[in-house]
Computed example of a mutant assay.
Amino acid sequence: MRLSRRGLLLGLGGVAVLGAAGGGAFELVEHEVLPGKSRLDEALGRCDAKAPAGTGVPPPPAITGTFHSARRGQDVNYALVYPHGHERGERLPVCLALHGFGSNGAAAASTGNYPALVGAGAPFVIAGADGGGGYWHPHATDDPLGMLVDDFLPFLGRQNLDVDRVAVAGWSMGGYGALLCGLTYRDRFRLIVASSPAIFRDYADAERVNPGAYDSADEWDRYDVTARAREFAGLPVRIEIGAADPFAPAVRRLRERLPDPSVVSLSTGCHDGRFWDAVAPAQVSAIAAALA
């Protein structure tokens, strides 16, 4: 039996003010005025992104270590994942993997099951580095964006990797970071892949959701990718996001302003690993083609 809207709400223990009349309360949850949207999305099947069947091959292990970043003013942890059949020291192209808020480079290097998906036909190395929680843009005392290009890529070059053939992929905060990489270093990346990019609608929205993501309104203005949407003209970019993702409204607004809105794809999914696993095979294929 199909549940009514009120029935769904009564089944969601986290939703407050149930006495506010079923339809009205549903709309408040739907627009995140009341808590419980994530549970509502689950109940309605909005998070049911269809991940492909596994390859049956375990992912290769990561090589971890540290390098010194002048841009960040500290030693930075990194993780490299070489595809099966390839070893450290081989000259392979690189895909930088940018982690989300509260995560790290080692986790980014395995997000979306990328390591198990990189094939032998067009192999590349997945490289993740710790970027902190500052949304990948430069701050007064920390520059994770500059670290990627001025410190990490030269370090990777010293490992004999082909840093003339580089892509960048990121998830959530890292998806935003990937877009910022493309805008800042226009000729550096052969493909820019942003999964569920954490794009805010305005500075007040950023402060409400993640205080500290931007040090000031002026800093927000400098690194607002939506305001700079026209600058994406000519850049090799693809953006994927779940239709039920809380950042989807801001990404839709970005799409409306892009020179080529078709680079943005919205499909069933939420802001979670299920969605990232579902879109990963096509992303890995596109990265391999771009780096071949």
Rank of each mutant, 00 (worst) to 15 (best):
M1L: 14
L3K: 10
R5M: 06
R6K: 09
R6F: 05
G7I: 09
G7H: 05
L12I: 15
V17T: 02
G22T: 02
E30M: 08
E30P: 05
V33R: 05
K37I: 12
S38M: 04
D41E: 02
E42Y: 05
R46L: 15
R46K: 12
A51N: 02
P52D: 04
A53L: 13
G56F: 10
V57W: 00
P60C: 10
T66P: 07
A70L: 14
N77T: 14
Y82P: 13
E87A: 15
E87L: 15
L92M: 15
P93L: 14
C95E: 01
L98T: 12
L98M: 13
G100V: 01
N104Y: 06
A106K: 10
A108D: 00
Y114C: 09
V118T: 10
V118L: 11
G119R: 13
G121H: 11
V125Q: 03
D130M: 04
G131Q: 00
D143Y: 06
D150A: 15
F152Q: 00
F155I: 08
G157M: 02
G157K: 00
G157N: 00
Q159C: 10
N160F: 12
D162T: 02
A167I: 08
W171A: 13
L180P: 11
L183H: 11
R186G: 07
D187M: 11
R188D: 00
L191A: 15
I192G: 13
A206Y: 04
A206I: 12
A206W: 02
A213H: 05
Y214N: 07
D215Y: 02
R222P: 07
Y223I: 06
Y223Q: 04
D224H: 08
A229G: 12
E231C: 12
F232P: 06
G234L: 10
V237C: 13
G242P: 05
G242W: 01
A243Y: 00
D245S: 07
P246R: 03
P246H: 05
P246V: 12
P249I: 11
A250T: 03
R252V: 15
R253I: 09
E256G: 15
P261T: 08
V264S: 06
G269M: 05
C270M: 09
H271W: 04
D272A: 13
G273H: 10
G273T: 11
A278F: 03
P281K: 05
S285P: 00
